[in-house]
Amino acid sequence: MKPTIELRAAPHVHSGISVPVIMRNVVGALLPICAFSVWQYGISAAALILTVTASCLLTERFFSSRTGLGNTLADWSAAITGILLALTLPPNFPLWMGVVAGFIAIALGKSLFGGMGFNPFNPALVGRAFVQGAFPSTIASFVPSYAPQRFTEFVPSTLTAPLMQAADNSAWIGHAAIDAFTGATPLARWKFENFTYSAGDFMTGVVTASAGETSAILILACGVYLAMRRYLDWRIPVAVLGSALILAWAFHLAVPARYPEPVFVLLSGGLMLGAIFMATDMATSPVTPVGVWIYGALIGIVSVVIRYFGGLTEGVMYAILIANAASPLIDQMTQPKVFGARSR
């Protein structure tokens, strides 16, 4: 018997834009960020991005053939998950842990819920949350950017044997001869040393960070491109960044000595990448116009609250996951009134 109705994930709008077209464009928009990351961190970052993406694709292939969904690689969503996941990890993250992260992202974050469109949480962040929980110290160790030997030598920890502890990077970092490398992210330095960076540092990416978080300008430019082509909902990043900015500004105004400049909050850590590429995931964000603003504001506020008052230095990941969990509820509460219906 031939199925007469084909079940498909949102969006259902007939605008000539299909899911694979959107996904292909998102991948295209991520490539400059990947290229910049490789330019900064060299072959280690390239290996990490390729390995994590491959792990995601293979996992997707395995589960989609098992569950009878057919070949779902062509919709590019698994590739996006892989690239995004790699960009949120430290560039020197051991490859075998990257494989674990990719597997968990697709298997636990997506396939178990029924594949694309059915996942309640952003798969890339599920993968990252798992490795954050499993390897908390490894995921918090970084290498400097622009090390001279970055195109000829791998960072030792990248090539760590499977299941083993990350190799020691101190000799490699010493060889790089970068002055004043502390190994701490700007957010960690602010939290524990009360040290803030200038806005210019974030533009050129000389700060310590995950592979794809360093250049706020580049991420913003790619986001603007996607928003102009209508491939992402511009209201979500605006709501995320706007609410974070307002809250940070309020705190800074109240106690300037304790809380950093609002622009520091905006440019540091994964806020930009998260706001533009992860919060906008269509399957995990609300669809009502009001709901989108609430959802975005929730992410911005929770991020800043975790950064300022939490035990972790960075809160964007958990903020997005929390907002993902809340998004069905937001949708339900912000349903537009049916014309003529009586209010309850």
Binding site: T138, T160, L163
Partner: peptide, 14 residues
Amino acid sequence: LFGPHFQPWVIMVL
């Protein structure tokens, strides 16, 4: 099982 350099998956005992 894996020698002294094994990387424990902390989340598994949580």
